[in-house]
Amino acid sequence: MLSKQGLCSRTVATRWVLAGRVAVHGRVVLNPEFPVPAQDLGSVSIDGRALRPPEGVYLMLNKPRGLVTTTTDEQGRETVYRCFDGAGLGWIAPVGRLDKASEGLLLFTNDPGWAARITDPATGPHKRYHVQVDELPDAAVLRTLETGVDCDGERLQATGARLLRSGGRNAWLEIVLAEGRNRQIRRLMAACGLRVLRLVRVAIGDLALGQLGKGQWRRLEAAEITLLAGIDWSPPAA
Score class of each variant (00 low, 15 high):
residue 2 L to R: 04
residue 2 L to M: 07
residue 4 K to F: 13
residue 7 L to Q: 03
residue 10 R to E: 02
residue 12 V to P: 00
residue 15 R to Y: 08
residue 15 R to Q: 15
residue 17 V to Q: 01
residue 21 R to Q: 15
residue 21 R to S: 11
residue 26 G to M: 10
residue 28 V to F: 09
residue 30 L to C: 10
residue 32 P to K: 11
residue 33 E to A: 15
residue 39 Q to R: 13
residue 42 G to S: 12
residue 43 S to T: 13
residue 44 V to S: 08
residue 46 I to D: 09
residue 49 R to E: 09
residue 51 L to Y: 04
residue 53 P to L: 14
residue 53 P to D: 11
residue 55 E to I: 03
residue 56 G to A: 15
residue 57 V to W: 00
residue 57 V to Y: 00
residue 63 K to A: 12
residue 63 K to G: 09
residue 63 K to E: 09
residue 66 G to N: 05
residue 71 T to R: 10
residue 72 T to N: 10
residue 72 T to R: 14
residue 74 E to P: 08
residue 77 R to C: 01
residue 77 R to Q: 03
residue 79 T to M: 04
residue 84 F to L: 14
residue 86 G to C: 08
residue 89 L to Q: 07
residue 96 G to Y: 00
residue 97 R to Q: 07
residue 99 D to P: 00
residue 99 D to S: 09
residue 103 E to N: 07
residue 104 G to Y: 07
residue 104 G to P: 04
residue 107 L to A: 04
residue 107 L to F: 09
residue 113 G to N: 01
residue 118 I to C: 06
residue 118 I to E: 01
residue 119 T to H: 02
residue 121 P to L: 14
residue 122 A to W: 13
residue 123 T to C: 03
residue 124 G to D: 02
residue 125 P to Y: 09
residue 125 P to N: 13
residue 125 P to K: 08
residue 127 K to A: 10
residue 134 D to W: 05
residue 134 D to L: 07
residue 135 E to I: 06
residue 138 D to L: 11
residue 143 R to L: 14
residue 146 E to H: 01
residue 146 E to T: 10
residue 149 V to Q: 03
residue 149 V to L: 10
residue 152 D to A: 07
residue 154 E to L: 15
residue 157 Q to F: 03
residue 161 A to Q: 06
residue 164 L to W: 08
residue 165 R to P: 00
residue 166 S to A: 14
residue 171 A to H: 01
residue 171 A to C: 13
residue 176 V to L: 14
residue 178 A to R: 15
residue 180 G to W: 02
residue 182 N to K: 06
residue 185 I to W: 02
residue 188 L to E: 11
residue 189 M to P: 05
residue 189 M to R: 07
residue 190 A to H: 10
residue 192 C to Q: 03
residue 194 L to Q: 00
residue 195 R to L: 09
residue 197 L to S: 04
residue 197 L to N: 03
residue 200 V to K: 01
residue 201 R to A: 04
residue 201 R to W: 02
residue 208 A to G: 06
residue 211 Q to R: 14
residue 212 L to K: 02
residue 212 L to V: 08
residue 214 K to S: 15
residue 217 W to G: 02
residue 221 E to C: 01
residue 222 A to E: 12
residue 223 A to G: 12
residue 223 A to M: 03
residue 223 A to H: 12
residue 224 E to M: 05
residue 229 A to V: 01
residue 231 I to L: 14
residue 231 I to K: 13
residue 234 S to G: 11
residue 234 S to T: 15
residue 237 A to K: 15
residue 238 A to S: 12
